[in-house]
């Protein structure tokens, strides 16, 4: 069974504020990723890679088709599961590291990373210790762990985001440009984290701007082709 797969997934945007113009972005995407496999989305910028990622996460609705995620011993269709079920899938199965950290006011870095762990039932101490270790591994010094990341640099925020995404050990992980604003040393850490996650059986779908990183972590590429002009 795939960890995550799509079936005839299509997506259009209808811009009601621009006179109802329709922009087709995805057509009949069929993608299946097995546990322990890493698939990199390829294609020119604007082809819809990020849109596909967001559809996979349920952040964007699908126009038609399905996104099946193996969750709790069965497949859940993210595109039409009710909101509570999608939340449960996101809590236990499906992780997503976006390009930008959505900062929650006043919540310290370490807690931001520990929260998804605690949501899955980990004890507070255990979760906080795990969070601290992961942040340290991503070269975020302990002096920053107690601070909210609002004032951090882009690279630092990205590492907080990565720690939050990797900490729970989701069976399926979506990575949108995880190394975009990182230096060489931290890129290496991310490559290692991905390798470890794969060994642990995580299915990974990623967008990697950096082809060197991509080639090191991806088992295969999935081409997202730009669609022809708007209908």
């Amino acid at each position: 069974m795939s960890a995550i797969r799509t079936e005839g997934l299509s997506k259009d945007f209808t811009l009601h504020l621009q006179g109802g113009i329709r922009i087709p972005v995805l057509r009949d995407v069929d993608l299946a990723v097995a546990p322990g496999e890493c698939v990199a989305l390829a294609g020119p910028s604007g082809a819809g890679k990020s849109t596909l990622m967001r559809c996979l996460y349920g952040n964007y609705g699908a126009g038609s088709g399905h996104v099946w995620v193996s969750h709790d011993g069965r497949e859940v269709d993210i595109t039409n599961a009710d909101a509570r079920e999608v939340r449960a899938v996101r809590r236990d199965t499906l992780g997503y590291v976006s390009q930008f950290l959505r900062v929650i006011p006043r919540v310290p870095t370490q807690q931001i990373v520990a929260e998804p762990l605690m949501a899955r039932g980990a004890g507070r101490e255990e979760a906080m210790a795990h969070a601290a270790a992961l942040l340290k591994r991503l070269n975020l010094p302990a002096t920053l762990h107690g601070l909210p990341p609002a004032t951090f640099s882009g690279g630092e925020q990205q590492r907080v985001n990565l720690a939050r995404g990797f900490a729970p050990g989701y069976p399926v992980l979506l990575l949108d440009e995880p190394t975009a604003s990182l230096d060489a040393a931290n890129r290496e850490v991310v490559v290692a984290l991905i390798a470890e996650a794969k060994r642990a059986g995580t299915a990974i779908i990623g967008i990697f701007h950096d082809t060197e990183v991509r080639d090191r972590v991806a088992d295969r590429l999935y081409e997202v082709a730009p669609l022809q002009d708007a209908a």
């Binding site: 811009l15 009601h16 504020l17 967001r54 952040n59 964007y60 909101a83």
Partner: peptide
Amino acid sequence: QGLTDRVLDDPQHPYTQLLVS
């Protein structure tokens, strides 16, 4: 209606699009 981030990031109804924009 729906998941908060779905409604805000991929609003379907013209009014929601207006609200978010």
